[in-house]
Design a protein around this nucleic acid. Structure first.
Lengths: 249, 249
DNA sequence: ATCTTGGGTACCGATGAATGGAACACGAGG
DNA sequence: CCTCGTGTTCCATTCATCGGTACCCAAGAT
């Protein structure tokens, strides 16, 4: 007796988390996945993945392409567009970012802090962009990017401590003391300047009613980078966005 | 006997759908909601809403503001940014949309079809925009907007039938025959022209490997609208985007 | 000071939705 | 013919889910 059918040792993970585990299987290089891949990446049985995937499709969070592969659905965009720190912020920022973009004709970034990382909310680039691998919705390190340093400099102390003790050296930030000094300078001057091997950046903080909520930056190839011109432009844009924010936040 | 504790008549709605019901409570005018509002809008008990909300927060899909209200979280943006028909399309389209925006200095829209509606994927506007209530992530009718008509003209027949039989008159589309004629013209000329009370628009189809996948348009106040200039510009932009798409889709 | 209203939260018994292993159909290679 | 890997259905078991009840608290109203 006992057919070995059925059984349930799901380790007690709530359904919702498992569903988002499934959605978390997608990344920039894998925007369309087979059901089997989805299951593998979320480390769950195929039958479970299928059931969840169908429910997610019913809500529109997941779509099925012509070839049967799955992809993130438009419902996700529809809901995400209402995130105050996402598109909400973006709406207020876009006009000023456009201006900054016109003037500099270089990459313009807008990022917010999410835990110990920065999340890219918007990016403007020209037709044939010098390759930045920064993607909207992608994550950036706090310690070694312009926007990241701005966000970090005005973050709560524990966040700073954590970042200082765990960062990986890159560009002109080589030691923990480098980083500490950099953050102090950012706070003093209200902007960040930095460079890596081929690219350089200038960033400035965007403030809401309760302090720094985001950071804008210009990123350009090192040899085209005009710091003395970009810094005031970026700071002006950041202030313009901040002004928008205090109105409609 | 029996304490009336417990019980479970959830009418059989899967957890995932209920979770998205909760998220669906947000809209453009309500980007931050109390738990009680969330529960009311999703028509579920407060205790259930609390449980679901906590799980959604654990995944980052939901955030809690300083005042305790709930809002859509960054995780949603992170995942949504991987939607092929959302940000995926957007990435390919942005440079050309920028160009179109520079030339016309009017609203530039990018939309895809989702069922019987159009969904706005991107919108560029100037600082002090003439008021269009179109929002990124928002939905537009197919029958009475420029992008909508383009998407509809190349949609499967059943979709067209449905739209023709249920549309609500607006602007220069007054009868079902108006609409039928308009769609035929769109197919013939490969663009749409339309006007409402105060605004006018020119739209053109964006094609992927398997036909029309999106539509671009310029929207301007009627008195500023230069159709003869906008139509070629919009069509050129649409073709440029289409070219991008066949490469990296 | 007392009542009322409406938030948020904790508790917990009952139960049905969720679960995943087994088994099947299909197509592509080998 | 036999793998291999895919998507899919089925279903016995069971644990996560459910929501009523109850509680605390702050803000108004009485």
């Amino acid at each position: 007796m006992n057919g070995t059918r059925g059984g349930k040792p799901p380790k007690g993970r709530p359904v919702i988390e498992r569903a988002f585990d499934l959605l978390g299987g997608f990344d920039a290089e894998h925007r369309a996945l087979l059901l089997a891949d989805l299951a593998r990446r979320a480390a769950m049985p195929r039958s479970s993945a299928l059931r969840l995937a169908r429910q997610l499709m019913a809500t529109g969070a997941l779509e099925q392409l012509a070839d049967g592969r799955y992809a993130v659905g438009l419902r996700m965009l529809e809901i995400a567009s209402l995130a105050p720190r996402g598109h909400g912020l973006r709406e207020a920022a876009m006009p000023s970012m456009e201006d900054l973009f016109h003037v500099t004709r270089q990459h313009v970034l807008l990022a917010v802090r999410d835990g110990a990382e920065a999340l890219l909310v918007e990016r403007l680039s020209t037709h044939d962009p010098s390759p930045v691998d920064y993607r909207i919705g992608g994550r950036l390190p706090l310690a070694t990017t312009g926007v990241g340093q701005v966000l970090l400099a005005f973050a709560p102390t524990p966040v700073q401590e954590h970042a200082i003790s765990t960062f990986v050296p890159d560009g002109d930030v080589r030691t923990a003391d480098d980083l500490r000094r950099t953050l102090a300078e950012v706070r003093r001057g209200d902007f960040a300047l930095g460079s890596r091997t081929t690219m350089a950046t200038a960033a400035a903080p965007v403030r809401g009613p309760d302090g720094v909520v985001a950071a804008v930056s210009v990123v350009a190839p090192r040899e085209q980078f005009a710091g003395s011109a970009y810094v005031p432009a970026v700071r002006a844009a950041a202030r313009a966005i901040s002004r928008q924010l205090t109105g409609a936040w």
